[in-house]
Design a binder for these strands. Sequence first.
DNA 1: CTTGTATTTAACCATATGGTTTAATACGTT
DNA 2: AACGTATTAAACCATATGGTTAAATACAAG
Lengths: 126, 126
Amino acid sequence: MTADRLSATFSALADPTRRAILARLSTGAASVNEIAAPFSMSLPAISKHLKVLERAQLISRGKEAQWRPCELKAEPLQEAAGWVEQYRQFWEERLDRLDAYLQELQAKEKEKMTAPKKKANGRKKI
Amino acid sequence: MTADRLSATFSALADPTRRAILARLSTGAASVNEIAAPFSMSLPAISKHLKVLERAQLISRGKEAQWRPCELKAEPLQEAAGWVEQYRQFWEERLDRLDAYLQELQAKEKEKMTAPKKKANGRKKI
DNA sequence: CTTGTATTTAACCATATGGTTTAATACGTT
DNA sequence: AACGTATTAAACCATATGGTTAAATACAAG
């Protein structure tokens, strides 16, 4: 499946082991063994996680003798940040609208008390 | 598995259908049928996606007659934004360090030419 | 109380994910 | 050539994911 790049990015970030690997790499490039050291997990498991991160273009890999040093590549993270930012903005806006709505509600409190019954499809768009 | 909340958030965001649902909900609350309309997918499938979003606390659900209106809840997104932001900062920093490193490299160009052989474990921390 | 609408549950299926262990590969060193 | 180290590949397993269809549930209205 793995539709688009954004999906691949979020999917890669959904695993705590992989996020920890990225954190490690943010302090500098490292070999697979170095990366694997803190985890109580087999080397092949880490190797698979690295492959996921590489396919999501969150890391790039070099070739130095028998080592395949990994390096953080933050471009997809910026893309993800952009996506999320869009909703952060929405959220701020929404809080403003909620505030306005609550004030409107408070103003119409008395009128509401006299209404006989509430219609079922009257969902408020806050 | 679904370790922590951050994992749940990223995992929920990893699906394009779910991201589209969030986009729809950012324009206002909606019923399941309304949400499902644009997708060529069965209602139960949408229902499952909504459950995932709800468990990730990205939406909340009401109960109005036979409708279960969904509403966007952006808190986890802010958490995710925070996590990603950390790496955006790293990335800017890293670009600065790379810049500095390249200048240093350029300065030592001649000296490097006289070095006899490169040691294998001499990975630079850029 | 029956019908219609909205939604979820159940059962099922195919594929993906995350882990394991046991080879295989690649390379530097002796 | 043989050995040790670094890493990946293969085969396997359990569980998760994303979808389906058919049935169950919840509620409003006739």
